[in-house]
């Protein structure tokens, strides 16, 4: 009990230090837009053609980070598979899903996939993009795992999609290196802002990310379910 109390006091104290530091040095909302952020807001549309500035930061200005981020997710899916491989769990009796659940999920599933694709296709125009879209798609699969006993996506196909999307992403980056001497450069025409077909390679990257994140998250859920 005393240990818990000390732990509580210590963590509260650390929180208090952080709070007072943050409160004094970075008052809420009173920072001007400056540095690189000001550049992105002013020239973002001119340079990259996407009206969603966060998207152009994620995919191009800081696109190298996003490549790393995709790698981290890939790493998690791989590591999870490696660690859980060969684990067997005794089959326990699971309750049968009800008829309502089975019917509803069957009809909801394509809609969820459609919604996910909508999000990643419109990543450069609206909030969202490849990562949330991938997670939405994985949610659809998760729903099916729970509601349909017999539903199992092919692990072979998942792995192939994931790996193919990953290599494609690197190839898009290398295309920039080959055509404009800079990795991940926006080498496609920018088009007219606020159209679906605009912003150069941003939609391409987001479609790749959508597929990749979707298959990776589904793979993670599948491994956790089966282990």
């Amino acid at each position: 009990m005393i240990r818990r109390l000390i732990a509580l006091l210590v963590s509260l104290y650390l929180g208090y230090i952080l709070y007072s530091f943050v409160y004094v040095h970075f008052p809420f909302g009173e920072r001007p837009l400056r540095g690189v952020a000001a550049h992105y807001v002013e020239n973002g549309i001119k340079e990259e053609g996407a009206t969603n500035i966060v998207t152009s930061i994620v995919t191009l200005y800081r696109g190298f980070d996003t490549l790393g981020e995709v790698t981290v997710l890939f790493l998690a899916a791989t590591g999870l598979g490696l660690i859980l491989a060969g684990m067997k769990r005794e089959e326990e009796e699971k309750p049968e899903p009800t008829l309502i659940m089975e019917t509803v999920t069957k009809h909801l599933f394509p809609l969820v996939l459609l919604f996910g694709s909508y999000i990643f296709i419109h990543g450069h125009l609206t909030p969202g993009g490849g990562f949330p879209a991938g997670v939405v798609i994985a949610t659809g699969y998760f729903m099916m795992f729970i509601a349909q006993r017999s539903f199992t996506p092919s692990e072979y196909l998942l792995s192939a999609t994931e790996s193919f999307a990953g290599t494609l992403y690197v190839i898009v980056g290398l295309l920039g290196l080959a055509l404009a001497f800079s990795f991940l450069d926006n080498v496609m025409p920018l088009g007219i802002p606020n159209r679906v077909f605009s912003a150069g390679i941003i939609p391409v990257i987001y479609i790749i990310i959508g597929f990749k994140v979707g298959s990776e998250m589904t793979g993670i859920l599948l491994h956790l379910k089966e282990a």
Binding site: E69, L73, A76, G79, I83, L84, M87
Partner: peptide
Amino acid sequence: LTAIVIGVAEMAMGLAIVMQ
């Protein structure tokens, strides 16, 4: 956005280790 994805990855790895 990046930090969230990294958190997810860490959590997945941690869960796998805990299951083992």
